[in-house]
Design a protein around this nucleic acid. Structure first.
Lengths: 192, 192
DNA sequence: TTTATTCTGAAACAATTGTTTCAGAATTGT
DNA sequence: ACAATTCTGAAACAATTGTTTCAGAATAAA
């Protein structure tokens, strides 16, 4: 017998996420957030909570999107190797054409050492990324698309690490060719 | 015909660097800094400048230390390949035993997109790291320690990227074995 | 010792921070 | 239409932010 919340919470989180993503946690003020979300701080504190809580929701929102993408790719009917190669090419495209680096990475370096909740979310996200790659690599090995001598666990970790570094490289050097060559080298190593 | 500065500037920068390194730029207040440096803010503003200027000095200090390490290693009389392998092992040890991730990396993700001066310093540091690796790899190739088919430019970029990712991995998973295995894999690829 | 200059310490600055308050507008089920 | 409840907007909160001020202590050269 009362009023309902006026704003779309998912949309508001999306907007907040974009601000946190671009500026980081500490450089973002509550004013920045309420401006972007187009809601009053009282509504924000009533429905979501304080700055930390909002940030956690945003990181969760970010990792949820990644999770959906992985699930979608895993359900593809193409060969595992081609799904893997497509994924790597898309990953490179995002680095080169994206507005900003991966939020999970930025966040890991800014927050994960100090905030246990954020760290746990990012660790889970990293585990999912690992599982996604491990799954594809192993399937590709069973189909003979990747040399059976390779260790899928190692390669999965290895790609995750390398991919993080590509982001840093692109921040500093803005050199698309550099990234593409490294991606090509990684793919070549898989297939021989 | 007047007074001299009372505090040791190099030592003060060192102390400030440690605070920035641990907390990042935006999470660090001027009070945090003056407390650690053990000087009054008026002295700080008189001698060094504002927060941004201090940060730039700290990043420069950090990259200077790295530069000296690279120069020292390059002047070694050991074989280039063994210098390279030693360097990789030391890099792994720093990740596993260090208090915090590499400041240059943290800084690249927090600041480099917004602050041109910081970005330029980090880019130069990254170029030096590249040159260091390129130099060693090429020398090792000439001596037949590394397969002549490899591309030293690509391998140098590749190691830099991978190494950045190792930091992220260790922040999230705190798994020394993971890092060591990846390092071993990289070295193996070099030598075969 | 004097004098000229510079550094230091403590306090203060306005602006911004994250968060709370509360009166009144809004909307639900009856 | 009613009453009960909840949401919203604007203002205010104390605390902290980066930075400045300035009187006086300190010291170099004369």
């Amino acid at each position: 017998m009362a009023r309902n919340v006026e704003f779309d919470e998912t949309l508001a989180i999306q907007k907040a996420m974009e601000v946190f993503w671009k500026q980081g946690y500490n450089a973002t003020s509550m004013r920045d957030l309420t401006d972007a979300m187009q809601i009053n701080s009282s509504s924000l504190y009533n429905t979501i909570g304080d700055k930390q809580e909002l940030f956690v929701r945003c990181v969760n929102h970010y990792t949820d999107i990644r999770k959906k993408d992985w699930d979608k790719r895993l359900s593809s009917k193409d060969s595992p190797f081609s799904v893997l190669v497509d994924y790597i090419h898309d990953a490179v495209d995002i680095i080169i054409n994206g507005q900003d680096s991966c939020m999970a990475i930025k966040c890991a370096f800014e927050m994960a050492t100090n905030d246990q909740r954020v760290k746990d979310i990012l660790k889970e996200d990293s585990d999912r990324s690992y599982q996604f790659l491990y799954n594809l690599i192993q399937s590709a090995m069973l189909k003979g698309e990747i040399d059976a001598d390779e260790d899928p666990a190692l390669l999965a970790d290895y790609f995750n690490s390398t991919w993080t570094g590509w982001h840093e490289s692109y921040i500093l050097h803005k050199d698309p060719v550099k990234i593409k060559r490294m991606a090509q080298y990684f793919i070549k190593q898989l297939s021989k």
